[in-house]
Design a protein around this nucleic acid. Structure first.
Ligand code: NAD
Ligand code: NAD
Lengths: 212, 212
DNA sequence: CATTTTCTGTGAATGTTTTCACAGCGTTTG
DNA sequence: CAAACGCTGTGAAAACATTCACAGAAAATG
């Protein structure tokens, strides 16, 4: 019922609302939220429609109540347990970023093939062997994984995650993964993003730019 | 003339073509490329239209020539010089990932405020103080930057980048940046991506799911 | 050498997302 | 207390992106 981009914006709104709340703001208008989010007021109102919350014309949206409604719509649990597979350079950065420090997502298990890493606790998170994958994911009821293994290993590893019951994968490897329809895969492809930046950053002879 | 998503897919096609070429493949059909890219054949053909390349009905697209054409369309230079600002956990992972190892993008300068890092060479890349920003970017003709500083520093740092002549920013901080219209900003927001994954991974009572 | 096959390139149709524009309604103002 | 104001919620329009469907062409087939 809600598009992918609406989901993304809703999570952004919630983050912004959280900030506003910390600043003691109690009410906010669609155009203010829009400004903060880099969207239009109409867009914000549409997005908020889908969560089923209603503001008042007089005072706009109530910050706390709107956060609550967005949460009710987006979240299946107040805190999501996440697994990380591939504790390399990127994986360690992700651990440092999320473990302890994040209130919505908690990386509760890591996995790697490297025996220098398995069995140890890295950035506060235990690193398991892949053999333990099914067992640990089941025990902790983990449905979401971040995948940060080398590109050549990504598909095979994703398969194992799916077999272990994962239904959502955030994939950092620059590879398109195949997965059954009931599993959602989102790619974070830094190179592709950079290509877009490079394109738009132009130096581009875009239309009628000077040729010499 | 070309949409943002077309740009992204073109860069993906190029990567896939590169792989095909390494495997000795000389020709490829739209539906094969589509399969690899997770798109439809019609989509691939549309995308390729915008770069102005034409295949033949008999043998599809010539791998080398198509890569060439995509490059001509996307690239302003065969190798893009990129700056990295913020050499923390994520910054170091990015350095390790890109320095030397990538053929399209080269991180040629890093910047940080931490005096333990400035003046040193990290993962093969010299780390400068922010005071040197303008000078170094000008000398190396850098127009693109990756921004990996803490959220609270992101806007201020982005301003300095813009002043130093940067026209494209890949922003990893979970903050919406304001920038002049001629500067392109793309956000890589891991948290937002995770929220989307969590949503779609549903544990969600989506429509008519079992309730007990 | 006619026919069938299979592909590209693209106009048109369809589907999706964003924006417009305004009715309706509390609040403020004179 | 009536008028003016500024906001929300939302149908309808516009903009944008994807898919369909087929003409045209090169190769394979008989
Ligand atoms: N480092 C970055 O900033 C960055 C940026 C963009 C994309 N990526 C992508 O992210 C992925 C990881 O990057 P990285 O820099 O951390 O690489 P890395 O080589 O530092 O780490 C890879 C880790 O995965 C482990 N591994 C290998 N095979 C495995 C398997 N089958 N199962 C489990 N673990 C396995 C390795 O032991 C290692 O610890 C790569 O696909 C890379 O292309 C990284
Ligand atoms: N680590 C991750 O995996 C991850 C994931 C998602 C988002 N992020 C975001 O990326 C950014 C960086 O994350 P991190 O984990 O590397 O943080 P970090 O704290 O490890 O590193 C931040 C670095 O930026 C430097 N810095 C601080 N202020 C600066 C300034 N004004 N100019 C230049 N450099 C400055 C610090 O000295 C430090 O080296 C943060 O905004 C974070 O939210 C990180």
């Amino acid at each position: 019922m809600a598009s992918n981009q609406t989901i993304g914006r809703l999570s952004l709104y919630r983050r912004l609302l959280h900030g506003l709340q910390s600043d003691g703001v109690r009410n906010v208008y669609s155009h203010q939220l829009a400004r903060l989010a880099g969207a239009t007021a109409a867009q914000v109102r549409r997005d908020i429609m889908v969560v089923g919350y209603s503001g008042s014309a007089a005072h706009g949206y109530e910050v706390g109540a709107l956060m609550e409604s967005i949460g009710q719509f987006l979240d299946t649990a107040p805190v999501q347990r996440v697994a990380l597979v591939g504790v390399g350079n990127l994986g360690r950065a992700l651990l440092a970023h999320f473990v302890g420090r994040h209130h919505r997502f908690s990386i509760v298990a890591a996995f790697d093939v490297d025996t220098h890493k398995t069995g140890r606790v890295i950035h506060g998170c235990r690193c398991h062997t892949l053999a333990e994958l099914g067992e640990v994911l089941a025990a902790q009821e983990i449905r979401i994984a971040m995948l940060a293994v080398p590109p050549g290993e990504a598909q095979e590893t994703a398969n194992r995650l799916v077999d272990a019951g994962v239904t959502g994968i955030l994939n950092f490897a620059p590879v398109r993964l195949w997965a059954p329809r009931n599993v959602y895969v989102e790619d974070m492809d830094v190179t592709m993003a950079l290509e877009r930046v490079a394109y738009h950053a132009g130096n581009h002879v875009h239309e009628k730019e000077r040729v010499t």
